[in-house]
């Protein structure tokens, strides 16, 4: 979504920006929840004050997503292969719908992700969970990514020029 789509005649702009921000915020927490390992999600879930009553719109279900690549990296799409994904949809008594889409075949991860997605949409629980759940999970993921990247960086080649007759002493 580009900002060009929301740049308009002024009146609806604030509302549209609000929607856009909400979508962006949700995209962010869903991406964090999708990457969280089972143990971290269980720990978070165990720490919740209470899990609101909910019913499944779609009980956790394992399926496949066809992953596409692009010819030459930036050209037309082609089908690379599939990956396993588990999804879940549930609804709180107040009507809030939570969705979980996580890589792999762990139904429990998808369920906890969906519950947290619903809680994060509820104004009452959102600020607290953003602080206590999403921020630490995101920090752990950033730390793992940073460590991986720094290990790779340690293998970066430093070239030096060999000069004829200039042997190191």
């Amino acid at each position: 979504m580009t900002s060009g789509q929301t740049a308009g005649n002024g009146v609806g702009q604030t509302a549209q920006h609000g929607t856009k921000d909400r979508v962006e915020a949700r995209r962010f927490w869903m991406s964090v929840l999708a990457r969280a390992p089972r143990e971290e999600l269980e720990a978070v879930f165990a720490g919740l004050a209470a899990c609101p009553e909910h019913r499944f719109l779609r009980p956790p279900e394992i399926g496949l997503v066809m992953v596409q690549g692009r010819a030459g990296g930036g050209g037309n799409a082609f089908n690379l292969g599939e990956m396993t994904v588990t999804r879940c949809a549930l609804q709180f008594a107040d009507g809030t719908v939570g969705l979980g889409y996580v890589q792999g075949r762990d139904r429990r991860r998808a369920e906890i992700a969906a519950i947290l997605d619903a809680l994060l949409q509820s104004p009452g629980t959102h600020p607290d969970l953003e602080q206590t759940v999403i921020a630490p999970l995101a920090a752990a993921q950033a730390a793992r990514r940073d460590a991986r990247s720094r290990k790779a960086a340690s293998t970066k080649v430093e070239f030096f020029t060999m000069v004829r007759g200039d042997n190191p002493k």
Partner: peptide, 22 residues
Amino acid sequence: RTTLPRIAVSRPIETAEMAVRR
């Protein structure tokens, strides 16, 4: 693989945005 339903087709992955390890 043939026992699982296909849930979706992804957007093409962007290898230019890869978190590079090599």
